[in-house]
């Protein structure tokens, strides 16, 4: 007992630093925001401390509902697109020679060094009618005349996926490169074609990694703020835009805090549901 105590103390000491950082940079701001969401708004001013549910009641509008659903939809769709392209892509990378793998990974990582603003404006230019890629296709004889692919939903989806794709590959790379190459080979000796092998064995045995990557991209995209404004039309604006709008242009901090808290709550529930489904499937397979 006596001998164990210092050990426990030291173990706790090493934890204090991360705990402190977590407290300062996450819990305190979150607590502030949670508190503000219950405060009373002073029209024309800021807010005064109090406790009321008015802010949450005020969320019940068509605009908020539509934007919330749209944000979740965009995040879910981009996560689905990223994972369904990223998974086979990463699988092929891990089957390459070491050298080629490094080249591909470095190339992907270099995308991460670009800021969201640059990516957004670059794509808005490339997808435009006047100076965009469609002009190139016209020149190549692939298209009749130049068209504008931006602004619009596809442009937004494209931009978000472009940003999230490297992260998807990064999350999927370790489990895929750890996959025993004998697993797909075993499936082949058992009569499965390469495509069937991919879906039944590679996808099947890495379901957890796929769920993790999906959740990661989903959460990552939920916060999209710049791209919807650059590449989308106003009806493609996400909840982040709405929250910022309320906070800064309408100086309604309590409402924006309530929006953020509610948004986070819904997202957490969805993530938890996704993870539960992923787990249940693994157990219940006959």
């Amino acid at each position: 007992m006596i001998g164990e105590k210092p050990k426990g103390l030291r173990a706790h000491l090493t934890l204090t630093y991360p705990a402190l950082m977590l407290g300062i940079f996450f819990i305190v701001p979150f607590g502030l925001m949670a508190a503000v969401s219950f405060f009373h708004r002073q029209p024309g001013g800021f807010y005064i401390p109090g406790f009321e549910l008015t802010n949450y009641k005020n969320l019940y509008t068509a605009l908020f509902g539509r934007t919330l659903v749209f944000s979740l939809f965009v995040a879910g769709l981009s996560a689905a697109v990223c994972v369904s392209i990223g998974f086979p892509f990463t699988y092929f990378i891990t089957r390459m020679k070491r050298r080629a793998q490094v080249v591909w990974l470095v190339l992907l990582m270099s995308v991460l060094s670009l800021s969201e603003v640059i990516v957004g404006f670059a794509w808005s230019l490339l997808l435009s009618r006047t100076a965009g890629l469609s002009n190139l296709f016209v020149w190549l004889g692939l298209m009749e005349r130049a068209v504008a692919w931006y602004p619009g939903f596809m442009a937004l989806l494209f931009g978000i996926c472009y940003l999230a794709f490297p992260y998807t590959v990064l999350v999927l790379y370790p489990p895929l490169s750890r996959l025993d190459p004998a697993l797909p080979e075993a499936a082949q000796t058992l009569g499965a074609s390469p495509i069937r092998t991919f879906f039944t064995v590679v996808v099947g045995s890495l379901r957890n990694a796929i769920v993790a990557a999906f959740v990661m991209v989903f959460v990552f995209t939920l916060g999209a703020y710049l791209l919807p404004q650059i590449l989308g039309r106003p009806r493609h604006w996400t909840l982040s835009v709405l929250i910022t709008d309320a906070a800064i242009y309408q100086t309604n901090m309590p409402l924006s805090a309530a929006m953020a808290i509610f948004f986070m709550f819904v997202s957490l529930v969805l993530v938890a549901l996704t993870m539960m489904i992923g787990k249940r499937k693994r157990i219940k397979t006959v």
Binding site: A187, R196, T285
Partner: peptide
């Protein structure tokens, strides 16, 4: 996959996401 040669691998390569029964009858599912 068209040779019909059964193989036992050095690492065994059992499918970790399937039960014993599902592993054994994977070829029948295919």
């Amino acid at each position: 996959h068209k040779r019909n040669f059964g193989m036992v691998f050095q690492s065994l390569a059992l499918f970790p996401h399937l039960t014993v029964g599902e592993n054994v009858t994977y070829s029948l599912r295919v």
